[in-house]
Simulated assay, not measured.
Amino acid sequence: MNLRNLLVPLGAIGLIVFGFFAYGWAGVAAVAGGLVMWALLHFTRLMKVMDKAAKRPIGYVGSAVMLNARLSPGVNLMHVVAMTQSLGEQLSAQDAQPEVYRWTDGTQSHVTCEFHQGKLVKWALVRPEPDEATPPQGA
């Protein structure tokens, strides 16, 4: 079980109790208002990320190399979706752990990310081999 699933509700209840003992019902109202504002800020951010991701193809990223450089272990899936502005192409089975997603760019380079419990565990960048028949773009 994720400890955060237990600590966040207990922290909210603790803040409400503290507000009641410190300022009475006005303290409960102030703390409850602050908690609602916090929840609305997170909900708004989630909706903005999903709105941007809905406007792009699934599994597409502008540059797989830049995405690879910006990733770090422990980043959650929503943060990666916000960076790519696109939902990843799911390679793993639905609701299976670990979750595996892929983002591909226009040069067919792709980053495959593995998430365990919603947190990035590992990722790999794959770049296609250059074709000898195709001249370099600078030539």
Rank of each mutant, 00 (worst) to 15 (best):
R70H: 07
V75A: 07
L87P: 12
N76Q: 12
G74Y: 11
K52H: 10
R56W: 02
M83V: 03
G59N: 08
F43P: 00
D51F: 00
G74D: 11
G74E: 12
F43E: 07
A69L: 08
K48L: 09
H79F: 11
K55C: 08
K52W: 02
F43H: 07
L87F: 02
E89F: 08
A82N: 11
M83G: 06
N68S: 13
Q85A: 15
D51L: 01
V49Y: 08
S86D: 09
L77G: 02
G88I: 12
K52T: 10
K52E: 12
G74P: 15
A54D: 13
A64H: 05
P73E: 13
M50A: 12
T44P: 00
A69R: 15
V65A: 05
L77E: 06
R70L: 10
I58G: 05
V49A: 11
R70Q: 13
T44E: 09
P57L: 06
L67M: 07
A64C: 09
H79T: 10
A64E: 03
M50F: 05
A69T: 08
N68I: 03
V75Y: 12
K48H: 05
A53K: 06
S72Y: 12
N76V: 04
S72W: 07
Y60G: 00
M83E: 12
T84W: 09
R45E: 13
L87M: 14
I58W: 00
V80T: 11
M83Y: 09
L87R: 00
M66K: 14
K52P: 01
L71D: 03
V49L: 09
